Simulated scan of single mutants.
Amino acid sequence: MTIYDYSATLDNGETYSLEKYRGKIVIIVNTATKCGFAPQFKELEEIYATYKDKDVIVLGFPSNQFKQEMTTASDAAQACQLKYGVTFPMHDLCLVNGDSALPLFKYLEKNSKGVLGNSIKWNFTKFLINQQGEVFKRYAPKDSPKNMVKDIETLLNQ
Rank of each mutant, 00 (worst) to 15 (best):
Q65G: 01
N97V: 09
V135Y: 06
K113Q: 14
G36A: 05
C80E: 14
Q158N: 13
S17F: 12
S112M: 09
Y107E: 08
Q158R: 12
Y139M: 12
V58G: 04
I28A: 12
A73Q: 10
Q40T: 09
N111Y: 06
T31G: 11
I47V: 10
C94I: 15
C35E: 05
L93E: 05
N157I: 06
Q40G: 08
P39S: 08
W122F: 10
Y139H: 11
G133N: 12
L116N: 10
Y84P: 00
C94S: 05
L59T: 05
F37R: 09
K150S: 13
K121Q: 07
K106Y: 02
F136S: 13
W122C: 11
N157P: 05
F88E: 11
K146Y: 14
A38L: 05
S63K: 01
A101L: 03
C80F: 09
G133V: 10
K54F: 00
L102T: 02
Y48H: 12
N111S: 01
D75F: 06
Q158L: 13
N12L: 11
G23E: 09
T71E: 07
E46I: 10
L44E: 05
P89R: 15
C94W: 07
F88Y: 15
K146W: 09
M148R: 09
K34Q: 14
K42R: 13
D151S: 11
Y16R: 10
K24V: 02
P89F: 13
M70S: 11
F124W: 05
K106P: 00
A49D: 10
P145C: 08
L116D: 03
G13V: 13
K121P: 00
P62E: 00
G60Y: 07
M90N: 14
D53A: 14
T72R: 05
N97P: 07
S63Y: 02
T125K: 10
I3G: 14
N64K: 04
D5I: 08
A140H: 10
A49N: 14
P89A: 15
N30S: 05
L18K: 09
V29F: 08
C94L: 06
E109R: 15
Q68V: 04
E134N: 11
L104G: 02
F88R: 13
S144D: 08
A8G: 13
A8P: 01
E45I: 00
A101S: 13
K42V: 04
F61P: 07
R138V: 03
Y4D: 06
I28W: 07
L10V: 01
Y139P: 04
C80W: 10
P103E: 09
S119D: 06
N111Q: 08
E14K: 15
K42W: 07
F41D: 03
M1W: 08
N118I: 12
K52G: 01
T9S: 08
P62L: 06
K54L: 10
G98N: 01
P141L: 02
Q158E: 11
E46P: 05
L93M: 14
F127N: 11
L102E: 10
L95V: 02
T33L: 04
